[in-house]
Amino acid sequence: MEEEIIKNNYTDAQKSRIFDQEFMPHINAMYNFAYRLTLDRDDAKDLLQDTYLKAYRFIDSFQEGTNAKAWLFRILKNSFINDYRKKSKEPAKVDYQEVETYYNSEDVDRQITPDLRVESLSNMIGDEISNALNALDVDFRTVIILCDLEGFKYEEMAKILDIPIGTVRSRLHRARNLLKEKLSEYAKSMGYKTA
């Protein structure tokens, strides 16, 4: 949780109202985020439950009128890192810096510059895009979910992820290149011309 927060002293009725009106409306988006992070239905359920209970426990540090969705997403992301990332079935965490440096290089950008076409995307009526998204490293996956699925602004993403806004921008750009690369592989394997 944030260091300098104003502690409210909500009554039970207020807590109940905040929980129902501010927190519960985001439950589907939160479940989807939990699932996309853990890639496991049972882990996603546990993570979602833990997050909502935590949100309730810390409800006095939630400021009414502020962005509840961003507040909840941040708790979920932190719970994932602290409690699930270690035991998740994902391969050991890749060194961020290494990945970012690698994908930052001009070479990679040039290689990736999309040879993917809109027409081949319209043929992806199955799980191709979902699989492509899930195949990305969790940090790249996360920014795409936050931005493209949930519509968070860069500044909100920076707060949710505790990273500078410039890193949000560059990570997002790279994540999208990688996603296109994956989609392009699918398109090729489906036999569609990509260029």
């Binding site: 589907n28 979602l48 999309p114 076409r117 319209s122 979902s130 795409i144």
Partner: peptide
């Protein structure tokens, strides 16, 4: 531009799910 738009549409259509 159209590719970016199409990918976003596809993501929204295919990559969301509801909580049980």
């Amino acid at each position: 531009y159209h590719l970016e738009v199409a990918i976003r549409d596809l993501l929204k259509k295919k990559c969301t799910r509801e909580a049980p």
